[in-house]
Design a protein around this nucleic acid. Structure first.
Lengths: 192, 192, 192, 192
DNA sequence: TATGAATGAGTGTTCATTCAT
DNA sequence: TATGAATGAACACTCATTCAT
């Protein structure tokens, strides 16, 4: 499901098949553990990925590099969903499905926020790049719906993204409350 | 600004002046460090408060007790601001000032979220109690403005609270963006 | 049951009734906690005795002073039992009752051994004095029985005392095994 | 002197030469410190073994695991002595040498008792297994001597073991007294 | 190259002891 | 005098990171 599936990359990322395999496994393992929230040590990540701690460090020299890799992959996956719903579903259905997917997805990041903030501070490029990618995804879905006349036009993707995304991050709302609020937002968006 | 200023409390909180002083200092030190986000060890809190580590532990036997104390105090302060603006300012000004105060305030909690979530899990009473207090504060301001006819009546305090509060928690929004979004929300609330 | 019941002591021990009362309470509380074995902090002792930690330190400036006081009191109590059985019971019954009492008593000291050893090292007088007192007690019972012709005469009190006392201290024997072994020893002692 | 000298073990103990070396060093260091009795912190054990604290924890995740390892090794060594004297010495000499060795050995455990008791409570298997091993060792020596007709036959290994072993544990007996008492016991055992 | 053993600074927490009230 | 608040050294234990095999 990830996007970097080519065997070689310009920046010299893993060539050998097993190395690439390990890279993916590690990101996946880290994602799962970050979502579970507890005991996310480097050791635990390596173990869950089924490799030695040394191998983890070969791929990601610092802990924060793991955080960054997970987040880049996360963003990529959301963007891919956007691209998919736009071509596969009706405009309104697309935005409905996308927002709920986005919410469900984002909810898994709650425990990950402090690490993420740190990653942003150390590497501002990460923030701007993923920001753009996410904005693009939301805009893609939103503007398609707006062009089809099913969604209000006085809202920017950034505003939607800000409200929805941040809402999901709150420690104060339950999953159910988030879903209900999304319903409210969708109601507000719809042209009747 | 805190509310418990009487020399004795019914629940048996510290009576001795120096003990009360230390208690306040510790909460204050903890709040500052939680806002700064990094290096929030018990040692650091005690040091910033200017007391020995043992004193910190006498007041708060577990780390999570510090988190809880800071949060309770936080909630109290927000509620107090609500009560103050309602009597001191015009209805619309009150809601405007309150929401911006709330936002500025909540922004300081960003780094504090994971700890807070853990505290909620360990002590559900903390969540419900502070939830009620906050809801009450927001409702006080909102309903006053609604009765004065300056704010739409089709919104509940809970919705306001949910949107605003969670927005502030996002790692993805800058302080400036939050302030701008608050402006948008206020615009949406106003009866014109 | 303790022996120092006079209101004044040559060495300047507590004069005031409440102080003496506290002293006794503290020793009693400490004994109970040492037997239970866990969490025998100075704080816990003071609490169980119903006094403040400061009061504990007024009576016993160092932790080891509590250990010493408990042990002196222990020895005294055993000696008193010896003196009592000798006058109140038949010779054989006396030794039988005494040894079982001694065993039951000594079993409570198991968790106390390391502290005791330390006390001996810091204050050799404690060891020799209590040693003498205990030896005297055992000898009193033993020799009375020997003179009455119901117990073998080729054993010294020291040997009895060594075997029985140390047996009780073992981590390796259960209470039941200790009782059984005492039976064996009594069998061996008896003149038939 | 230890028994596990093969490079690999069935249960997955450390394979790497340096790891095995460290394991042994750590047990040895811990034994020495437990015998000395004071200041037996994990830090002190690691230091004495010449490794970092992390290495100690890699080998023994909890303090009690060190206690257990030391005790298992202790028991093993005593058993090995028994097996050796039985084949290398005359029956009476064997029992004489063995008991004195046992005593000297056990005396080193005095300061170790409370830790040991805790280990027994947490892991009853430890108690039963080592108990069996020790009983077997004593029985081996005793029965060999009994079959050779040099020792009384009306004593079980358990009784010997109970008396001798526990005697050594006493805080109240000096090393010399223990040796003397062993002499007495040997006298009592001998068939004349 | 992959592995996992080694490292040690850092963390939460305890507790004997001191001292202000 | 009795109280309990304050102190800080010490402890068991964790984990990111380095390095030998």
């Amino acid at each position: 499901m990830t996007i970097q599936e080519s065997a070689t990359t310009s920046e010299g990322r893993p060539q050998r098949a097993d190395a690439r395999r390990n890279h993916e496994r590690l990101v996946e393992a880290a994602r799962e553990l970050f979502e579970e929230g507890t005991d996310t040590s480097m050791e635990a990540i390596a173990k869950r990925a089924g490799v030695g701690i040394g191998t983890l460090y070969r791929h990601f020299p610092k802990r924060i590099d793991v955080v960054e890799a997970v987040y880049r992959d996360d963003v990529e996956q959301v963007a891919i969903v956007a691209e998919r719903v736009v071509v596969e579903l009706e405009p309104w259905e697309a935005i409905d499905v996308f927002l709920h997917a986005f919410v469900n997805y984002a909810l898994g990041k709650r425990r990950f926020l402090n690490e993420l903030r740190e990653a942003f501070e150390k590497n501002p490029e990460l923030k701007s790049a993923s920001r753009e990618r996410l904005d693009g995804a939301v805009r893609l879905v939103l503007e398609t719906a707006q062009r089809a006349g099913v969604v209000r036009t006085d809202l920017t993707s950034e505003e939607i993204y800000g409200l929805v995304g941040s809402m999901c991050m709150s420690a104060l709302l339950t999953t159910e409350q988030c879903d209900r609020l999304i319903g409210l937002i969708l109601d507000g968006l719809r042209v009747r």
